[in-house]
Design a protein around this nucleic acid. Structure first.
Lengths: 321, 321
DNA sequence: CTCGCGTTTGCTCATATGAGCAAGATCCCC
DNA sequence: GGGGATCTTGCTCATATGAGCAAACGCGAG
């Protein structure tokens, strides 16, 4: 485009988008035919001079969703807009809301929903509408008895999601990680526990999040792992955890021995699931999101715009006043 | 708007603006009639959920220009967009560019143009196109011989503007501020100087900027005033200077004695001019811009979006990712 | 239950806009 | 300076959209 045309297209855009003039009126003002104005406007759009943003906490980014589906083979991708967001918390809250929306709109409605636990899932449970479905049974897919403070969060999450869907919640009465392999095997073979695991294995859908591999991980908070142990896992290549199991950037288990002592559905089960919804948001989780998506751990990803761009390899640059 | 409609309008907006679907197609997707979709879209716009920005260094903000004209009685206002601008320098450069554009498009073309000098005016001179007009004579309206480094800037500005318009430049061969009143009176009565002042008084248009009242003022830089003297002026209420004369927020001369020793067109002359174009941009100049516009020193203002909003009393709040 | 009022809905019609095409302008290579 | 090749321009026509209106709906008072 020649320079004088570029300037004209900006003048036309001002009149069109800011002053709501018709292309015909603009033609009169700028002494152009209305077709020329239309072309200038089209050029301005094509050159990226016209930026249209949807400013709303519930806004999604459909073009990014599409590119993500195409690039990764996910069966669905939900990407919330990060326009006007300042804190990671708000972004995560928006993402949780979107996950709740997605769950609500899911057809067919899953009879049994396997879930993990953590801050994200808890958030999702809060954002779900009372009566979001009728008769969905919820089952935990990994050990969820917290060792200290956060007591009951895991249980609360499952119960809330189930209650809001007028269904039942089945809790996995076991720690997430056992100290000794033998204990884990013993618990696992316990009738109650085995029954829950079997139920979990037969769930029609899974909903889970992922944790970053650092001191803020829920597994550290809950007392299952010490910061030093996590640091050691990171040294071995861990980028985060999925249902309590630490994976490297290829989605492989980092520490086989630790994994053996971790009670819950194995990752392979998620990989072969028909419907596995991962909810992952926040700058710190870009790496684990990559691993989850890259290794086929989920079929549906709910995330934020920045994480999605990171997955697509287009890091966002700073802008705006 | 009821909550469910708000959400629907966001979904519709995503499909319309991001996916370029027609309202009809959106209707099919969301199971609505196309009229309902149109109404939702209208609601989304009305609620401010749709933000359209023109991202370009030459973009102006026409609605703000209009409000500014209406609120202040200016005969014209040019407001450059500050979208995507990070530094004050860039904003000032954009504003200077806009001033150059305005000057170029001015009809009737002024025969004689009275100008001040300073960083801003220099910027404008550089942004003017060679051949921006044919035969405009330029005359300085205030003393312009610099006392130190910046030597020649004032002269260069006038000469450049004139040369690019194939006209002549008339310089005011005098300092901006004299140390003693008697000297000023003597110079003023000198044939050469008096002749220039007369020419300046008869100019068909004026173009000038304003300086902020602090150490960065061009008058301090040029050595006419010491930082201490400026500080004293500020104490007396000075918000900035216009063609070398310090004014308070009401546009009144702050120090009559100093003003007496300042050589150039009196401010009253600018106030009664048919066409006086002020170019003022940057956060530090909001106060002086208010004084200039409020006291009728200009008929046309070229400024940036932030300054314009400040004049309108709508300070911009921070936003964006 | 019924009536009246205000809101929402689906429609008709006028207008605005984009696609596609033919004529005209411009370039540039010889 | 001639003559294709390419780009630009103004147009016709089909489509998308907004204004305005009447019917349907919902809601509360009697």
């Amino acid at each position: 485009m020649i320079a004088t045309d570029e300037l004209l297209s900006i003048r036309a855009a001002e009149l069109y988008y800011e002053e709501n003039k018709t292309q015909d009126e603009i033609g009169t003002i700028l002494r152009l035919t209305r077709w020329k104005v239309g072309r200038l406007l089209a050029q301005a759009k094509a050159s990226g001079f016209i930026r249209i943003e949807i400013v709303h906490p519930r806004a999604r980014r459909l073009p990014i969703e599409r590119r993500l589906r195409e690039a990764t083979g996910l069966s669905d991708a939900i990407v919330v807009s990060s326009v006007g967001v300042s804190s990671d918390e708000e972004l995560q809250s928006r993402t949780a809301q979107a996950a709740a929306d997605y769950l609500t709109g899911l057809r067919p409605i899953p009879r049994t929903l396997g879930i993990s636990w953590g801050r994200t899932l808890h958030d999702v449970s809060l954002h779900l509408r009372h009566g979001w479905a009728h008769g969905v049974d919820v089952v935990q897919i990994n050990g969820g008895v917290s060792l200290n403070k956060r007591a009951g969060t895991a249980a609360t999450t499952a119960v809330t999601i189930a209650a809001k869907a007028f269904g039942t919640a089945t809790l996995l009465p076991s720690p997430a990680i056992l100290e000794r392999l033998i204990t884990k095997q013993a618990i696992e073979s316990d009738r109650a526990v085995a029954g829950v695991l079997e139920l979990a294995a037969g769930a029609s859908a899974y909903l889970y999040s992922a944790g970053q591999a650092d001191d803020h991980s829920a597994l550290v908070d809950s007392g299952y792992l010490s910061p030093a142990e996590v640091a050691e896992l990171v040294r071995k290549g861990a980028v985060g955890d999925v249902v309590g199991r630490y994976i490297d950037r290829f989605g492989n288990i980092v520490d086989a021995e630790l994994d053996e002592r971790t009670l819950g559905l194995p990752l392979e089960h998620l990989r072969s699931a028909k419907l596995a919804i991962a909810v992952i948001s926040g700058t710190a989780k870009h790496a684990v999101a990559r691993a989850v998506v890259g290794s086929g751990l989920c079929t549906v990803l709910v995330t934020d715009e920045d994480t999605a761009r990171a997955l697509l390899g287009e890091e966002e640059e700073e802008e705006e006043s």
